[in-house]
Design a binder for these strands. Structure first.
Lengths: 335, 335
DNA sequence: ACGTTTTACGAAATCGCTTTCGAGTAAATT
DNA sequence: AATTTACTCGAAAGCGATTTCGTAAAACGT
């Protein structure tokens, strides 16, 4: 089934291709009568503008790219949720979202790919792996918005972490806990590092001794890592009063280890996670955690990037989305 | 930063645009010497072919569309996993994946969108919502592969369900269970209905009375629905020997209800889920379930669709991926 | 040395659409 | 009645590639 083109509408209507195009695009120099005629024919013929041809001449594709390079990909609940929110928002705004695959033999080159596909802007969800490729993007003339930003913090959006970690720690402190373990994810990206520093700062301010496993400083926030970190921590420092983990999965991993050891949560140990994934409500006890507002992150991200695209802004201040302590059942006053 | 075009390479090299294009595309009627010269210049100038222009003339975009219309979107672990596998596979094969957003004021029209964006093929992950739009796609001349197919079963890929459900039931039967509850998802799509029929068939074959809640026949496979279904079932029919749920989340929902009631799993009731999400290994007891091979589904789906695209095949037999009972800790011999 | 085949390249058309600019006609102005 | 002004429309160039076809030069054969 061949596509109907403007030329054919032109033939049938008797108007020139330019006139047809203008009618279709609401130019003001087309009389209402002819516009209606042309619109009718276009409709009858089920005319569909060829977006490819359009972007060739307009240099605009109404398509936003996404560089998605994440351990476990979409299985990573956190990013899946954000992506879902982005997807919904872009749908509303009329943009398509395209995953930029990258199989150039000569190494990754996202920038090239973006140019080639003529995307209007790009989201970057990428932790660490291909720094240079991402940096090239970040410092190009294409609007870019990055999640989980690097130290440069250029054009990024993320959840507030520093204060919310402190809030959570204060909450534990007020419950009487003093020996508080921290289970970190990677401390080499911006976010992970910020959380880590927040913990250290807090402990210092309150004159407490920090407990964490230095060697495990490059984790991916998984259940197994949480389990393992808790095990090492336990063997090295004994039973803590409370645990603060940098992800829910890690928190649940830690909780599972403690349960396996025969301890009871929250009677023996209090635990707090980070993220607020669905699982928090499913497990026993329900996990107290710091909620990231995925919906809002995705929404603001989309709005911000589109704003950058439409107003040709190439540098923005970091967009920081508030996060919030959600109290459930995994913490308790110290006996 | 303007993009380098073939014209510029032409200017600099002294060769015509056609020659440059041919050199870049390994045409045989270009001498090795000039090819090298041109390639060098292209490289030095960081030439990037404009994919838009290319697809305009080639009528091929190396882009595969995806219609993604699912309750809870990517938060639906099942589809997120498949998508992840697809993504990885397409990356290898050099195709980009584009989410077809759809905000035409005059209702959804995926087909239009596909034509417009010139996608080479389309995946459809859509349960029920916009039937006609999806059907138009399915019966168009664009290669389409559908997950969770409709009754027509046209061009679809899915997990084997009928036999694996029976296998699971037989497993429960052999453990001595006779009063086996089924918690269904929707029975109005192909997959859901097949599972449901499998249950009924099995119970009939073994002369057992089926237990399920008829009214709950249009669920979305969620935790809450599982919890609720189990509650209703319990209130109506009392405690069962075993439960087979059509998703892991539902199974876990059911398990949670039973635990809340003070029962012990698997001592009092055996439970089997369907999907094999990560959670199965995390909860206590670990959930016995029927595993869908997401990896394989995504991989085969990609291969199949690409095959359809490259060999202009527009109709294929259903692709059925085996699934498999994974025995963990949630089932036990009846006392 | 002459005819024939190869080889290497370029001109030009094309893909489908947008946009500038000029021109013809009708309407408005003085 | 003459001159502006406003409306409509179309010709043509251009976006950045690909591809057909023709041709000049080189290579070959006898």
């Amino acid at each position: 089934m061949a596509m109907i083109t403007i030329q054919e509408i032109s033939k049938i209507s008797g108007y020139s291709p330019s006139t047809v195009s203008k009618a279709l695009n609401n130019y003001s120099d087309i009389s209402e009568k002819t516009r209606q005629k042309i619109l009718k024919i276009a409709k009858d013929l089920r005319y569909v503008p060829n977006a490819t041809a359009q972007s060739l001449v307009k240099k605009r594709s109404n398509t936003i790219g996404i560089v998605f390079e994440v351990e476990y990909g979409l299985n990573n609940l956190f990013f899946a949720k954000i992506l879902e929110s982005i997807r919904k928002q872009l749908e509303i705004q009329g943009y398509d979202l395209i995953f930029l695959s990258n199989n150039t033999n000569n190494g990754k080159d996202y920038l090239k790919h973006c140019y080639s596909k003529q995307v209007d802007g790009v989201f970057v969800i990428s932790i660490g792996q291909s720094k240079e490729a991402v940096n090239k993007l970040l410092f190009s003339d294409i609007p870019v918005l990055s999640f989980d930003p690097d130290v440069e913090m250029k054009n990024s959006i993320y959840s507030e972490s520093y204060n919310s970690i402190k809030t959570a720690l204060k909450y534990l402190y007020d419950l009487g806990h003093r020996k508080i373990v921290y289970i970190q994810g990677s401390i080499y990206n911006f976010i992970g590092n910020m959380r880590y520093r927040s913990y250290l700062d807090f402990m210092k301010e309150y004159g407490l001794k920090p407990y964490y496993i230095k060697e495990l400083d490059n984790a991916f926030y998984t259940f197994d890592e949480g389990y393992n970190a808790m095990r090492m921590n336990y063997e090295r420092f004994g039973l803590p009063d409370a645990v603060l983990a940098s992800s829910d999965l890690m928190a649940i991993g830690a909780m599972t280890f403690l349960k396996d050891k025969g301890y009871h949560i929250p009677d023996d140990v209090s635990i707090i996670g980070f993220d607020d994934i669905q699982l928090c409500e499913i497990i026993q006890p329900k996990l107290t955690t710091i909620r990231q507002d995925y919906e809002e992150i995705g929404k603001r991200a989309s709005q911000t990037l589109i704003d950058m695209i439409e107003n040709k802004i190439s540098n923005i201040d970091p967009v920081i989305i508030p996060s919030k302590l959600i109290v459930r059942e995994s913490c308790k006053q110290r006996k």
